[in-house]
């Protein structure tokens, strides 16, 4: 099952080269995407969201394509994180939130009463802005959820899964000799990759990333971006970012949010080079936001 484990990119330090290659990849894909539309993995239709009396999202429609990175950009408070949290129903945890509209994963309504939120969240993983490894060992951080969901049966399978997830997240080489040390003792960038490894350990289909690199230094950011680029072959990724260059580097598609609405959604190349809307142009050229 894990035969084709992605080996770590050896030149983590030469991330600049890797980034440029990543970029050309993305743009060619964006071109092909225009002609041969990829499968829509997650589809949001007329999504409206209220925090108490305040409406935060207004009739959002967005298609997130399979095995693509979709970036959500926009000024602070525009609703991009709120929207992202709709996709794995994390907003359920806030009592005052009310959501209308429809969000489907592979054509199935994720807000349908029959949908088990636990299963949904093991299909739609999430990585947070601030790395939040559990205060447990590196091994436990990854092994926790598979064990919880009964994905693995034997100790050996679990060991294998931990190794595989860490390799996939590009962290194996750095931590293989100290799996029992606390996850919180790692550096910020390593912690974030641990969180990514933790998310992919349950083999999700979609990974949501809420500004995953905003608390990291440029080098760690580059590593994460490289990783995102590698992960998209297997997973569908939606990423919220404040960093426009990052969106341009990693995402095949980009949605521009403003005041709880999606102003423009297009393949990244078109959105950045030839935006349809004046607001988008103003934002990406740094006139506000």
């Amino acid at each position: 099952m894990y035969s084709e484990a992605t080996t770590e990119s050896p030149e983590t330090t030469e991330s600049v080269t890797a980034m440029t290659t990543g970029q050309t990849d993305t743009s060619t894909q964006a071109q092909t995407a225009g002609t041969a539309e990829k499968n829509v993995k997650v589809k949001a239709e007329n999504v409206r969201l209220w925090y108490g009396q305040t409406q935060a999202l207004h009739d959002l429609n967005l298609d997130i394509h399979e095995n693509e990175v979709t970036a959500l950009i926009g000024p602070s408070g525009c609703g991009k994180s709120s929207f992202l949290r709709c996709l794995n129903r994390m907003n359920d945890l806030i009592p005052s939130v009310r959501i209308e509209g429809q969000i489907t994963l592979d054509g199935e309504d994720i807000y349908h009463p029959d949908v088990d939120v636990v299963q949904l969240r093991s299909n739609v993983g999430m990585v947070f802005q601030k790395p939040n490894p559990f205060p447990k060992s590196i091994y436990e951080n990854i092994a926790y959820a598979p064990r919880l969901h009964g994905i693995v049966n034997s100790r050996r399978d679990l060991d294998e899964l931990v190794e595989h997830s860490l390799k996939r997240a590009g962290l194996w080489r750095e931590v293989s000799d100290r799996l029992q040390t606390p996850g919180t003792a790692l550096s910020g960038g390593q912690q974030q990759r641990l969180c990514i490894a933790r998310a992919i350990a349950v083999n999700p289909e979609v990974i949501l990333m809420d500004e995953p690199a905003s608390s990291l230094d440029p080098l760690a950011t580059a590593t994460i971006e490289e990783l995102i680029d590698e992960l998209k072959d297997r997973y569908t990724i939606a990423i919220v970012t404040h960093n426009l260059q990052q969106a341009a580097r990693v995402a095949g598609y980009t949605a521009f949010f403003h005041m709880g609405e999606i102003v423009e959604f297009n393949d990244t190349d078109t959105l950045f080079t030839n935006p349809r809307e004046q607001k988008t142009e103003d934002y990406i050229t740094g006139r506000y936001g």
């Binding site: 969240r121 939040n132 959820a145 933790r198």
Partner: peptide, 9 residues
């Protein structure tokens, strides 16, 4: 949040 996102009850 992290635990909830992993599918914990």
């Amino acid at each position: 949040q992290g635990a909830f996102a992993m599918g914990c009850s």
